[in-house]
Structures are given as structure tokens and as C-alpha cells.
Amino acid sequence: MKDNQHPDTGSRYARGSAIFAETLGLPADAFTASLANVAPRFARYVMEWEFADMVGESSIDARTREIVAITSLAMLGATAASVLRLRITSTLKAGVSMEEVIDIFIQLGVTAGFPIALAAIHAAQEQFNSVELV
């Protein structure tokens, strides 16, 4: 019987972990360890479903995928702020310029409202400052 409390380290999990690390620039082990005592299955879902299946099997290129991610996360507002900042960095890594990121968020002002756009622009500003220090 499979233990549903611990991540499966099979090939799907390993493939997702590699894509996670490549996309986000973070070790998958650190993410998994951060959830080990609370929600280890969730870490497995992220590696297998989000990264191995959704990202790994997508026909959408990384640049487009990251634009979709930051747009969606910005629309979620404060509940997604920390993940938005992380994905702004991965968006830059995927070849989207800082100017394009800001223009994406300005466009959100029309469809999602100015508070959403402004919050996303501030998140981008924070990330740009940290990226420039590297």
C-alpha cells in the first residue's frame, strides 16, 4: 500500500522537481522540506501535477507561461503576493523584460482595476530591486 503522507520520488516526481528547479531557480528539495511536517502531499502535487504534467507537457513556451502566471497571480491580490514575487523573478528568467512586466500589470488596470495593477507594480518593483543586487 502506498504511503499518502510522503512524496513519491518516482520518475514523474523527479521530472517535476527538475522542471521546478529550472523554472523557479530554487531547489525542489527546499520547497518539499518546507511542507514536510504539514502537507507533504501538497509538495508532491506541485511537483507532479503543476510541474511534470502542466509545465512539462505544455505546448506553451516558458515566456508565455510565465506571463500567464504573473497575470493570474496578480489577479488574486494579497493572497498570492509572495508567489507573485517569486514568479516575477522566473518571468524575467524566461526572457520577459522589466518594462514588459510593468506593461502587463498596467494592462490589468483596465480589466482588473487599478488597485490590483498598483499592487502588482509594487511587487515587481521589489523584485526588480532584488534582481539588480545580484
Score class of each variant (00 low, 15 high):
E132F: 05
E99C: 12
E132L: 11
H6I: 15
E57C: 06
D103N: 14
Q5F: 11
Y13N: 09
I60F: 08
I67E: 03
F31A: 11
L76H: 13
D103A: 10
F31G: 01
V83Y: 01
E66N: 06
N129G: 14
A36S: 15
A28R: 00
T64E: 12
L76S: 08
L84V: 02
T79C: 03
L24E: 06
R85G: 15
T9L: 03
I67T: 09
G109A: 14
W49C: 14
A30V: 14
F20E: 00
R12D: 11
N37W: 01
A123E: 02
A36W: 08
W49D: 11
A39L: 02
T91E: 11
I60H: 07
A120T: 05
T32S: 07
G109V: 10
L92I: 06
M75L: 15
G16Q: 01
A112D: 15
H122A: 12
A124E: 03
K2S: 15
A43H: 01
D8T: 10
A81R: 05
D29E: 15
S11F: 12
V134M: 13
M98W: 09
S90V: 05
A74M: 03
D3V: 07
A39V: 02
T111G: 12
G109R: 08
S58W: 15
G95D: 06
S59C: 03
S130E: 08
A43C: 10
T91C: 15
F20A: 01
P7M: 11
A62I: 02
A78S: 07
M75W: 01
T89Q: 13
Q125P: 00
V101E: 04
F128W: 07
A80R: 02
F51K: 02
A69H: 06
L92D: 04
S90M: 03
F51Y: 10
P115S: 11
V131R: 12
I116D: 07
F20D: 00
T79W: 05
V110F: 10
E126T: 13
A52F: 00
R63H: 07
I106A: 08
P27L: 11
A124L: 12
F114T: 15
A33C: 05
F42L: 04
A120P: 04
V110S: 13
I116W: 03
I106T: 07
V68W: 09
H122E: 13
S58E: 09
G10Q: 00
G16N: 05
T23M: 03
R15P: 08
T64N: 15
D61S: 12
S34R: 10
G25T: 12
V83D: 05
A124C: 12
N37G: 13
D8R: 13
T64W: 08
P40K: 03
D8P: 00
M54C: 04
E126L: 10
A36N: 08
V131T: 14
E132T: 13
